[in-house]
Amino acid sequence: MDDWTGLADFHSSMDYWMRVQRHCAESGLAVADEVALYDLPYLDGQRLMIPNGPGRAEDSDGFRQDSILNDGKWFTLRESGRSRADVYADVVEAWFGTLNDLCKHFIGSYVGESTRMRLNLNLPIVNLRWLDRGPAPGWIESNEPNPNGFEPATRYFKEDEPGRFYFTDAGDGETSFRLNMTWRELNETYAHGIPGVEGVPMPSFSDD
Rank of each mutant, 00 (worst) to 15 (best):
F150R: 10
V91K: 03
D90P: 05
V20M: 08
P162K: 06
L186W: 06
A153R: 00
L7A: 13
S13Y: 15
T5C: 11
G171D: 14
T189A: 08
G53F: 01
E185A: 04
S13G: 13
M202Y: 04
F177C: 05
W74L: 14
Q46T: 15
P51R: 05
G171P: 06
D3A: 06
M202A: 12
L69H: 03
L123W: 09
Y16K: 01
K104Y: 03
C24L: 13
Y156S: 00
G138V: 06
E161A: 14
S83H: 09
V35F: 02
D71P: 05
W130F: 14
P162S: 14
Y16D: 00
D169I: 13
K104G: 02
V35W: 04
L102M: 15
A36G: 14
T98H: 03
E93Y: 07
S27R: 08
G72D: 08
T115K: 00
L123R: 04
N120L: 06
R47E: 11
D2K: 15
V126I: 10
P137L: 09
D2V: 10
R164L: 06
V87W: 09
A85H: 11
D207H: 03
E58D: 10
G72V: 14
R118N: 06
A170V: 12
F157Q: 15
R64V: 09
D66R: 07
V87K: 05
P54I: 02
R116Y: 08
N146G: 13
P147M: 02
T115S: 15
M202G: 00
P195Q: 12
D71L: 15
I140Y: 10
M202N: 01
M181L: 15
G134Q: 00
S204M: 11
L131V: 04
G97F: 00
W4P: 08
P195W: 13
G163I: 02
E185N: 01
T98E: 10
R118D: 13
A32G: 07
W4S: 10
E185Q: 10
H11L: 11
I68W: 02
E159D: 07
C24M: 03
L69N: 14
I68M: 05
H11T: 15
N70D: 14
W4M: 08
F205Y: 07
G45A: 03
T175C: 05
S204E: 09
R19A: 13
D101P: 06
I194W: 06
